[in-house]
Design a protein around this nucleic acid. Sequence first.
DNA 1: GCCAACGTTGGC
DNA 2: GCCAACGTTGGC
Length: 129
Amino acid sequence: MKSEPDEYGWDDLIAEKEGTWDGVKNAQASNNMKKMKVGDQVFFYHSRQGLEIVGIMEVSEEQFPDPFDDTGRWIAVKVKPVRKLDNAVPLKEMKKNPKLANLAIIRQTRLSVAPVTEDEWEEILAMAA
DNA sequence: GCCAACGTTGGC
DNA sequence: GCCAACGTTGGC
């Protein structure tokens, strides 16, 4: 999941203890959120500023109607922080890694919520070590 | 700040 | 229902 740290960054999530992921108004991103289950692990990526994965969070509440959406079309989920990565993994490094060539976020930059395969997850964790 | 990529809107 | 125009996102 991506967020601009100016708007809502890792530190904001830590301060809040639990964050609501709302305001997603893109069909693909929304579908990806609908698939999320409580306990699912998610990377937190800083877009625009930072351009790196900074931490891991987990889904604490599955899809519910986005409280700020009047149309009723969109949903939100809640997440809570699990841990900060020892070393943030920059986009630049991920692009260099051939194992991550198919990473959804690389292939489709503008998608704000994108899936990560198990292999990709492991690879990114290894890069953060 | 710029611009490419992509989604959405609206006229036909 | 098509497609051009427009708006938004996000890497550079």
